[in-house]
Write a protein that binds this DNA or RNA. Structure first.
Length: 104
DNA sequence: GGGATGACGCTTC
DNA sequence: GGAAGCGCCATCC
């Protein structure tokens, strides 16, 4: 496997792996956990470039306010995976971070 | 080096 | 609630 474009991806992937089933976190939060406040975009990129055959629970990472950022098929898949873990969605299609959010 | 791009986020209208 | 604008910053061309 080729070396990651950015070594920080390793930290980001590790942080995402820490999120327990049934809980979610936002891109911004993950960025803060790895010591990169304000770099939510970098987390997004790390999710986009997941290593092959990894068990990283990418679907537990949502946009700010518990919103799903993915469009189309990918977004529906993410929602299904979360609901399968018991995550509740509001009628507006968002996750209540107060109850389903996770703090390390 | 300059400009465009993006699984983001916050404020404003 | 939704669309638009701006800030952010690594990466690519």
């Amino acid at each position: 496997l080729s070396a990651p474009t950015n070594p920080r991806f390793e930290l980001i992937w590790a942080a995402v792996t820490e999120i327990p089933p049934g809980r979610v976190a936002s891109y911004g939060q993950v960025a803060e956990w790895v010591g990169l406040p304000g770099r939510a975009r970098l987390v997004g990129k790390a999710m986009k470039e997941l290593p092959e055959r990894s068990t990283i629970p990418w679907y537990r990472v949502l946009g700010a306010g518990g919103r799903i950022s993915l469009e189309g098929e990918a977004g529906r898949l993410q929602r299904e995976l979360l609901e399968a873990e018991g995550v509740r969605f509001t009628p507006a299609g968002r996750v209540d971070l107060e109850t389903s959010g996770w703090k390390p």
